[in-house]
């Protein structure tokens, strides 16, 4: 599973759900904190559609942590300041890198749950889709 996908599932998951996955790793391994969670900034880069050039929209507050699990490094970065969650995410990343993470099934279950919630929210927004009654053509002949 790609890092992007794993981190998205974990970022969207609750702190408790992430803790549960990290606790399962910690039950059999002893991760060591290499870099304790701390706050920093990430600058958001965007592409604008007029000239297709890049610009900086602004910054977001992130927290990050690095752990070592039997020689495998685990890195996590997360928007916000939830130090416990980002540390647990780093433990899970290290377990993935070490090849000892056994929670992929749970990650897929969480992802399905998250997608379902977002798709239901999407359905609610789509109820505001406009259906125009056309009286004449807006396209010039």
């Amino acid at each position: 599973m790609e890092k992007r996908r794993i981190s998205r599932i974990l970022a969207r998951a609750s702190k408790e759900q992430v803790r549960s996955l990290a606790d399962a790793v910690k039950a059999t391994h002893s991760p060591v904190i290499v870099k304790a969670p701390e706050k920093s900034l990430a600058m958001v880069r965007m592409r604008e559609p007029v000239r297709e050039s890049l610009f900086h929209l602004g910054e977001v507050i992130v927290c990050e942590a690095i752990v070592d699990l039997d020689g495998a490094k685990g890195v996590a970065v997360l928007m916000g300041d939830d130090f416990e969650k980002v540390l647990d995410m780093a433990v899970i990343d290290a377990a993935c890198n070490k090849g000892v993470f056994a929670g992929y099934g749970e990650l897929e279950r969480l992802e399905k749950e998250q997608t379902l919630r977002l798709e239901k929210e999407n359905a609610m927004f789509l109820q505001t889709m406009v259906s125009f009654q056309s009286m004449d053509s807006e396209v010039a002949p």
Binding site: S40, L41, A42, M43, R45, M46, I61, E64, V77, E138
Partner: peptide, 30 residues
């Protein structure tokens, strides 16, 4: 903000890919 270091530049985000909650046009109805 000035007390925090900047650790990252994000990958380039493009609003073409955004999860929309509102989208209107005053130029075309369709």
């Amino acid at each position: 903000r000035s007390t925090l270091k900047r650790s990252y530049d994000s990958l380039v985000a493009d609003t073409r890919d955004m999860r929309l909650v509102r989208r209107i046009s005053a130029a075309f109805k369709d």
